[in-house]
Design a protein around this nucleic acid. Structure first.
Lengths: 190, 190
DNA sequence: AACATAAGTGAATATCTATTCAGTTAAAAG
DNA sequence: CTTTTAACTGAATAGATATTCACTTATGTT
């Protein structure tokens, strides 16, 4: 049934991401996706059952790819601060280098297209980060606060900075990244 | 022409906000808005030229109301920390007590419905906060970093915490608010 | 090459949504 | 109370967009 030309699927995904970044989830149509991907609209329906199916598949891939980036090069045996900084950097890198994916994920979380189930599953993939933060508290590196609250604060700050940098075309220079990490670290440290 | 039954306009706005919070900007239709507001679809077009006009008017009102809340009770003559804490609290209160408006504003910023012009204008209304931050740097209360970057970090953290609290039905207890302010303050302080 | 199968196409159709308008009801004026 | 005006209604229309399908093109098999 469904052909598995991975190249074409990625072509469709890239087209969708580009359009969502430009026009928002509210603004995309199947024919636009097809045009952007340089295929016929009918072809979309060879690879995906319908629009909802396409968006869910893309959401799923974006989340998986995001999580892989978050933990790239992370080693549990390193010190808390080293590990935390690594993941913090990875989070920022992801938002900067895969901006359209980050936007897509965020918009999906407020959208009726993505099934609730898929939204939930995707959140459970960052367990190692929770574990690291718990360790940070035990070793008295950071404030003794609810882990989810800490992470929500941290991630929110990162997301917003990445958004700002993108929409205002202000690349983040190393000095700025260093400062941003300090804003975060000085905030959480115990 | 347009009648000015302010009560009915607010009814329409509230209905729209409710639906956007539930289904996202991508998911709303004029007939749903009308049903939610308990009026006929045709009536929407008595008060607004079209859908775009409705959303722009709502965006405009939401921004105005938001800015009013941010600076409520703020006095320039107070100390930096007092003033900053006041505005920080106001920001958080706004996101918590007017959550659907905050969601709407955020989604509009990634949407083709809202005119670029309106998006720009709305950003210039928070000048006093910029001025306060500049003062904070001069008086060596806070780190000497780009003001926009500082604010982007701070606001991103607040937004995300408010989102979390809402979607997970976890009210923010006073102790948590105190902690969140410390996360922010310890981060920026010089 | 001849055949069989899979992939791709895009105009045609079905579905959905914005917008209009002829008719109705409510409010205001005389 | 009658007339005039404004507000409102929701079914009908117009305009988009999702989805299908008869047909074409490409790929693989004998």
């Amino acid at each position: 049934m469904k052909p598995k030309d991975e190249r074409k699927i990625q072509q469709i995904f890239q087209a969708t991401l580009k359009l969502v970044e430009a026009n928002g989830l509210a603004g995309i149509t199947m024919s636009e996706i097809a045009r952007e991907a340089k295929i016929a609209t009918g072809t979309l329906y060879i690879y995906f059952k319908n629009k909802e199916d396409l968006l869910n598949a893309l959401f799923s891939q974006c989340r998986r790819s995001a999580v892989a980036i978050y933990f790239k090069g992370y080693k549990e045996e390193e010190s808390f601060k080293t590990g935390f900084k690594k993941i913090w950097m990875n989070l920022l890198s992801h938002r900067m280098q895969h901006f359209s994916e980050a936007v897509f994920i965020e918009q999906c979380n407020h959208s009726p297209f993505i099934t609730e189930n898929l939204k939930e599953v995707s959140k459970q993939q960052i367990q190692p980060l929770f574990i690291l933060m718990e360790r940070g508290k035990k070793e008295h590196w950071i404030k003794n606060a609810d882990t989810t609250l800490l992470l929500t604060h941290i991630v929110g700050a990162i997301n917003n900075v990445a958004r700002y940098s993108h929409y205002h075309r202000k690349p983040l220079k190393p000095a700025m990244v260093k400062l941003l990490f300090e804003l975060c670290w000085d905030g959480i440290k115990g």
